[in-house]
Amino acid sequence: MRNSPDGHEEAVRSIASSLRYKPGALLPILHKVQERFGYVPARSLAVIADVLNLSRAEVYGVVSFYHDFRSEPPGEHVIRVCRAESCQAMGAVELVAHIKRKLKLDFGQTSANQRFTLEPVYCLGNCACSPAITIDQEIYGRVTPRRFDDLLAELEGRGG
C-alpha cells in the first residue's frame, strides 16, 4: 500500500475496509468519508473503488448522483435554508434573499474566508414551524430575517 504524506489514503482505506462486507456498502462508506473530511475528496474515489472492487467511474457516478456529497471542503459553518412549498408559504423566498445578501453568497458557495457555506435544502420535515433552516447540526424554525441575524450574531459572538 502506498503511503500518502497526509494519511488521507490510509484513513479512507480503513473506513472502506471496515464497512466493505455490509451489503450495499458504498453509501455508508461515502457518509463516513464525508463525516471525517467534511467532503468526499476526489482522490478517495480510487481507494474506495479498489476496496470494493468497483471501477472508479462507478464510484464517481454514485458520489455525483447524491446532493449530500460535496466535492469541495465546506466552510466552518454550513447553513442550509429550506426552499420547499410550506416554507415558501411562510416567507422563505424573502428569507433566502436576505440570507444571500447578508452572507454575500449564492447557494452552493463558500465564503472566501472559509467561514460559511450556503446550501439549499428541500424540506427539513419542520413544515409546521416554517420557514426552517439548519446551521451545522442545529435546526431552527419560524426563522425571520431578524432571527437569522440574531443567530448569526450569536455564532460570531461565540467565535466558533
Binding site: 420547499a84 412549498e85 410550506s86 424540506c123 420535515g125 409546521a128
Partner: peptide
Amino acid sequence: DEGDAGTFADR
C-alpha cells in the same frame, strides 16, 4: 425517506 415537502408524520 419522507421527502415530500409539507410532511413530517414519519419523523
